[in-house]
Design a protein around this nucleic acid. Sequence first.
DNA 1: GTCTAATTGTTAGCAATACATACAATATCG
DNA 2: CGATATTGTATGTATTGCTAACAATTAGAC
Lengths: 157, 157
Amino acid sequence: MIKDKFADAIAPVGHTDDDDVGAINEILGFHIRLAHGACLRHFTETFTDLDLTQKQVSVLWLVDDHPGIAQTDLAQRLRMDRATTMAIINRLQAKHFLRRDRSPKDGRKQALFLEPDGIEMLARAKQAIGEHEAWVKSRFSDKEVRQLIELLSRIHE
Amino acid sequence: MIKDKFADAIAPVGHTDDDDVGAINEILGFHIRLAHGACLRHFTETFTDLDLTQKQVSVLWLVDDHPGIAQTDLAQRLRMDRATTMAIINRLQAKHFLRRDRSPKDGRKQALFLEPDGIEMLARAKQAIGEHEAWVKSRFSDKEVRQLIELLSRIHE
DNA sequence: GTCTAATTGTTAGCAATACATACAATATCG
DNA sequence: CGATATTGTATGTATTGCTAACAATTAGAC
């Protein structure tokens, strides 16, 4: 019944209006992190029913786009280390969303493939991503979206 | 000796070139998250010696900007819930970077103040943030930085 | 003023990264 | 063949984000 999250009204401590000193608000990285937080929060809400995280959806999506992809390749594309990738793959496998096949070409590698459950879940996830994206993009014109993607890409590429 | 992180060379699985289907690369949220990841990773590297996380620095900074701020107010500004804020404050207090004083005006609130160690650490942190910011901003013109901040603000505000 | 409701801090617990490290199996190359 | 690198795996730790419950305090309704 109690809406905990951010319902808390703030009791302003002093006088400051967030735009005084060598303000934290001038730090680009600060805004990137806040925007990410807002984004991730809305994503999580949107995916409450599907019980999937952003990382998990990304993995399903990439495995679908690249059947037989290896864990290392996945990790590289999503900028994760191998241990973290393992944890995510394990969770998805436990839910029967994907399977590991030993790669015939390279015995060290595990080729990843979506299971039927995973294919269905991905379809639903893409639907939900549509909503989520609409929420994000509602703030921008098409031109601004392209601009934003271009600028952000310079950071992570 | 082994540079684990992202040293893994990728073994391209197939043919795809990342720009075929209803690509994941067209999702704005995806780029926000990758950019955030890259940002956070560099931040963490920059702050290895200081042993501070991004959240912790933000808290120190805000407590310095708003002496006597309450935890709820902090949480609201950084978009965290109360429990998470507690954990962060506890860690910072354990390091003697700040202290809790019961607020004289509202017995429920804890007024936060930096301790001498915290003040010194924040000074060093701001130095490090300068480097970190330079790394981020090196990709952009001044105009683009302002643009980016303006656009990102629309998401988290 | 009193009683009820809301706020604030706190504690405990859980899930999901993110990372380091070490190990085994496999592949590659001199 | 033998040294080295790659890949997956297992373990362990830290941080974050959230829920749920509880006590103390305050604010509001009446």
